Every structure is written in structure tokens, then in C-alpha cells.
Simulated scan of single mutants.
Amino acid sequence: MKSSFMEPVDRLTSRIKKKDTWFQKALPPGLRVAVTPRHLATSDSYNLLMYSFRLAHNTISYMVKQGCMVIVAEYSKEVFNIPTASDEWRGAAELFNIRWYNSIVLMALVDADYKFMWVNVGSPGSCSDVQIWNDCDLRDHIVPDRISWPQPDHMMTGTPHTT
């Protein structure tokens, strides 16, 4: 079974692999694939990624641009469905908020083991936090104190650290 990282590396290698020259060795495809999702997921600047990947910021800039084009080219037939009917276009437009950001807010409550206890998905990204909080059903239970919260307890054993 392939790891979740190796599947895109294998699929994208033929599109992003560069040849070694007499001047320098080409960067490995795995590194080239790793840079783009890291930048997209974290929104880290190229200067910050420069220290994580030990690459120049201008190299990272080129790799992110190329990586986005390669990902779209490789996965577009499987993932991106272009609407064809007017009602499909209306549905797509509802996801595109006033500021032209394609965003949907996810609000979740998790326990100490990072297991989801409650999830609210679907508020448009143009809504403020207060609007989403005021409309969510979790607020309807927390504000009037209808949830039976556990009693406060010490999280650590032993003596507290003093400075």
C-alpha cells in the first residue's frame, strides 16, 4: 500500500522531473511535489519555506507556480467538474462569496483526543465569526447552559512548577 504522499509523487513525476546538467543536479521529484501543497496549506511565505526546505525563495516561487499547473493538469479530469446546466452554475456561485473568495467556513468542537464531537460546515466565507456563532446550534446549547460540562479537574499530577 502506497503512502498518501507517494501517490501524487508517482503521478506527477513525469510532469515535473528535471534532468541533471553538468552544472547542477536536478531537485528530486518528491521535494518538488512537497513544496506546493505545503505553501497552499499553510500560506507560509516563500521566505519562510526557504528555511524549511533549504531552497532559495525564488526557486520555491517557481516550483509553486509549476506545481499548481501540474496538479491541475493531472487531476482536472477526476476532480474538477465544470458546471453545464444553469442550476449547477447557480450552486457554484453560492459558494463564491462577495469578496471573490471561494470559501466555506468549518467550525468544529473536538475532544482531548482530537475526535470531532460537533461540526458545522457551510457558512459562506464572507460571514463574520459572530454571525456564524449566533446561527449555530451549538450556541443554543452552550449559552443557556444545557450541556452537562464535566467538573474542573487537575490535568497534571505532581507539584506545580514554580519560578
Rank of each mutant, 00 (worst) to 15 (best):
L55M: 10
V119E: 01
P83Q: 04
A41H: 12
S76K: 13
F53N: 01
L138K: 00
S148W: 11
M50V: 05
T21H: 08
Q151H: 13
W89N: 00
W89K: 02
F53W: 00
Q131S: 14
W100P: 02
A85E: 12
F53G: 00
L49I: 09
R99Y: 05
I60Q: 00
L55K: 03
L109S: 09
S128Q: 05
P152D: 13
P150K: 08
A92T: 13
I60D: 00
S126M: 02
K77F: 10
S86A: 13
A108I: 09
D20W: 10
K17S: 09
P28R: 09
S128D: 04
V110T: 12
S86W: 15
M155T: 15
I98K: 11
C68R: 01
R54I: 04
K19D: 12
N102W: 12
R90H: 10
M107H: 05
I82P: 03
L40A: 10
L40Y: 10
S148P: 09
L31Q: 05
V143F: 12
K65D: 06
E88Q: 11
V72I: 11
A41M: 11
D113I: 13
R99S: 06
I16R: 01
K19V: 15
R139C: 05
P150H: 11
I147R: 08
R146I: 10
L106C: 05
G30M: 03
H57P: 00
M50L: 04
D129M: 07
F23Q: 10
V121T: 12
A85Y: 15
D87A: 04
D113V: 12
V110L: 06
L109F: 14
